[in-house]
């Protein structure tokens, strides 16, 4: 009753990589949130003598993060799309360990 179906310790290299890419997809929004919350630390125009961040810099930063996130999400999707069909068929735990 308590025993769960054993999860394999070692995966084939390919499926190992796929799982790490899935991890990347999961992490991506957190990275995005972190980067987009950075502006809360920026100096504002009513700061004490500190020169405030200029608008043009702010635009470049926010949109830059946006483009990076989209590119990451798109390429991850592309990677997983091409390989996801075999991902299900891969027999776990019988192939060799990734080196």
């Amino acid at each position: 009753m308590q025993r769960l179906p054993a999860t394999p310790v070692f995966l084939e290299r390919r499926s190992y990589r796929q799982r790490r890419m899935m991890d990347a997809i999961r992490l991506l929004p957190l990275v995005g949130l972190l980067l987009w919350l950075m502006p809360t630390l920026w100096a504002t125009s009513d700061g004490d003598g500190v020169e405030p961040v200029r608008m043009s810099q702010a635009i470049v930063y926010v949109f830059g993060v946006w483009v990076c996130l989209i590119l990451c999400a798109g390429s991850l999707w592309n990677y997983l799309k091409n390989s996801s069909e075999d991902a299900i068929d891969v027999e776990f735990g019988v192939k060799t360990e990734p080196k």
Partner: peptide, 24 residues
Amino acid sequence: MMVRIDNSDIGQWQVDGSRWTALT
């Protein structure tokens, strides 16, 4: 355009951090 933006009324960072976070 960038120069114009920096010289305008909204040319400096003036966002309140709590609003920024809450609205996101």
